[in-house]
Design a protein around this nucleic acid. Structure first.
Length: 563
RNA sequence: UGGGGCGUCGUCUAGUGGCAAGACACGGGACUUUGGAUCCCGCAUCGGAGGUUCGAAUCCUCCCGCCCCAGCCA
């Protein structure tokens, strides 16, 4: 632990945890929890939250529970429960045998509610939802007491029992905490703690027709589980007095709630409401669409758990409202994939090239290194023949300055193979479009080395026409056209990028990819990182997703030339 | 106009009275059989104004800006 090892600075949450360990506040224990409501898919923003909770537990020899906050049967489904567990595990976290549900505590929570009633700290209220809102007051005016606020304990007990017994319809009555209708903190103005909901719960079925509210449930669940640090997002800061109130009034074990800022990303939608709109509006093909910021989407797109965890670490944890540049996430993905992804050649927009002086029936195989960053990755053999495909954008009839690729009379290197020179072009007679290049090769340049040491700046990827496999490649762009998350409003659809997905259908990839398994990740040389789509790719009809493009210096040069 | 919170490079994040640190982005250069990777160099006086102090991003005062809260959602 020497200072010279430059231990990374602690974020404020970890500082609090360390301080509590030092002072023995919880007997030196560290126990966190991740409490998602199973009403949707987890996205990268949730990953910040559970990454923090699980990581802190790991780092301090503590435990982290997975607890489903399932107190609203109207919104929750088992499908989401399963998806959430899969996503948390995918990122490499483990809750051991501590899988819990707020609904596990419904009996105990009910007992706590009765205790509050007995103490005169809770009452049954007959006000309608609208009346409760009216009585609550506003941000600047205090609220008024409910006419039912002074019911006797006996009457409250009786009414609450009848609520539970199903005597009243939804919305007829609520159980409220008796706190302070004049509190400047609106959350303290006699919040509802139980509501009547004749709805079947995905775990408890029809056992209950009254369900506890979040504020009442959350702290008590933390307390029951022996949580020490209850980390949540910053909009709950106003709720902390209420969190503390229940624990204090009931005089039970008292965890500490700590709030941190949520994650925002440029060009990315991270609100559940909007994500739902994108899915239901048919703007994407489901929650696991590769364009989605859900973990399921990122997984399908080819992002790695390691890259996401590195990203989360670099983003840090603070209370400042911030928006992370999506470029940081992409950097982390490239950094990981550069180390681990095997290189392969694939031509996205094929342009046919005939090497006129290359023998008609000859097929050579060239040794190609799989990953120059990783000597243990080995090599493979790639077939070469007289007719090949190169990338259409690697040829220009009128090459601009600094364009080091193919052009009439220009010589380039075909990666791993030969030096070739463009001798002439073949056009479509109707459109005039260039449909084929006629080239010559230097037989002395086998392997790509110029025999006389002449300098050849451009190196192109290619595939042998007779051997290449046809494939579909999906190019993924941001869901939002603007840099920021955009304004709230009905015109949200206008903020969507209409070109977030570009599908290329006649791509050609090297033959070795024939049996690449679903999810396999590759670097398509000079282009970026791609993975085999885990849903739509089939042997014989390969589908790849572009995970992230490679940095493209030429694009920058070209742009600055144009400007 | 009530309450709570937050303001440090373009974007994040450290720093908590003694030379403003790191990452991404951006710009420049080196190297290169991926215009990839890698390597070098450059890039902020800390929301504003006063004050305290030998010394302030750090302490005090006032001001300004942004975010959250009026669900029987979480």
């Amino acid at each position: 632990m020497s200072k010279t090892e430059s231990a990374p600075a602690l974020d404020f949450v970890r500082s609090i945890v360390e301080e509590d360990i030092r002072t023995g506040k919880y007997g030196g224990r560290v126990h966190t929890r991740f409490p998602p409501e199973p009403n949707g898919y987890l996205h990268i923003g949730h990953a910040k939250a559970f990454g923090l909770n699980f990581s802190i537990a790991e780092e301090y020899g503590g435990l982290c529970n997975l607890r489903f906050d399932d107190t609203n049967p109207a919104a929750e489904e088992t499908e989401y429960v399963d998806a959430i567990m899969e996503d948390v595990r995918w990122l490499g976290f483990d809750w051991g045998d501590r899988l819990f549900h707020a609904s596990d505590y419904f009996d105990q929570l009910h007992d706590y509610a009765i205790e509050l009633i007995r103490m005169g700290k809770a009452y049954v209220c007959d006000l309608s939802a609208e009346e409760i809102r009216e009585y609550r007051g506003t941000l600047t005016e205090p609220g008024r007491n409910s006419p039912d606020r002074d019911r006797t304990v006996e009457e409250n007990l009786d009414l609450f029992a009848r609520m539970r017994a199903g005597e009243f319809p939804d919305g007829a009555r609520t159980l409220r905490a008796k706190i302070d209708m004049a509190s400047p903190n609106i959350n303290m103005r006699d919040p509802v703690i139980y509501r009547i909901l004749h709805a079947s719960h995905h775990r408890t079925g029809d056992k209950w027709c009254i369900y506890p509210m979040y504020d009442f449930t959350h702290g008590l669940s933390d307390s029951i589980e022996g949580v020490t640090h209850s980390n949540c997002s910053i909009e709950f800061e106003d709720h902390r007095p209420l969190y503390d109130w229940f624990l204090d009034e009931l005089d039970v074990y008292h965890p500490r709630q700590i709030e941190f800022a949520r994650l925002n990303l440029t060009r990315t939608v991270l609100s559940k409401r909007r994500l739902l709109r994108i899915v239901e509006g048919g703007h994407v093909n489901g929650w696991d669409d590769a364009r989605m910021p859900t973990l399921a989407g990122m997984r399908r797109r080819g992002y790695t758990p390691a890259a996401i965890r590195t990203f989360l670490k670099r983003v840090g944890v603070a209370k400042t409202d911030s928006t992370i540049d999506i470029a940081l996430l992409e950097h982390c993905v490239r950094e990981d994939l550069n180390r681990t992804a095997p290189r392969v050649m694939a031509v996205l927009n094929p342009l046919r090239v005939v090497i006129e002086n290359y023998p008609e029936d000859l097929v050579e195989e060239f040794e190609a290194v799989n990953n120059p960053e990783d000597p243990t990755a080995g090599s493979r053999r790639v077939p070469f023949s007289r007719v090949i495909y190169v990338e259409r954008e690697d040829f220009r009839e009128d090459p601009p300055k600094k364009f080091f690729r193919l052009a009439p009379g220009r010589e380039v290197r075909l990666k791993h193979a030969y030096l070739v020179t463009c001798e002439s072009v073949v056009r479509d007679e109707g459109t005039g479009e260039v449909v084929e290049l006629r080239c010559s090769y230097d037989p002395e340049s086998r392997g790509g080395k110029a025999p006389d040491g002449r300098r050849v700046r451009g190196t192109l990827h290619w595939v042998s026409a007779a051997h290449a496999l046809e494939a579909e490649v999906r190019l993924i762009d941001y869901l939002l056209r603007e840099a920021g998350p955009g304004d709230e409003g009905a015109d949200f659809e206008d903020l969507l990028n209409p070109n977030s997905l570009e599908v290329l259908t006649s791509c050609r990839v090297e033959p070795g990819l024939a049996d690449a398994p679903p999810g396999a990740r590759f670097q398509f040389l000079r282009q970026g990182y791609f993975c085999v789509d885990s849903v739509d790719s089939k042997p014989g009809s390969l589908v790849f997703n572009r995970t992230v493009s490679q940095r493209d210096t030429w694009a920058k040069i070209e742009k600055s030339q144009g400007a």
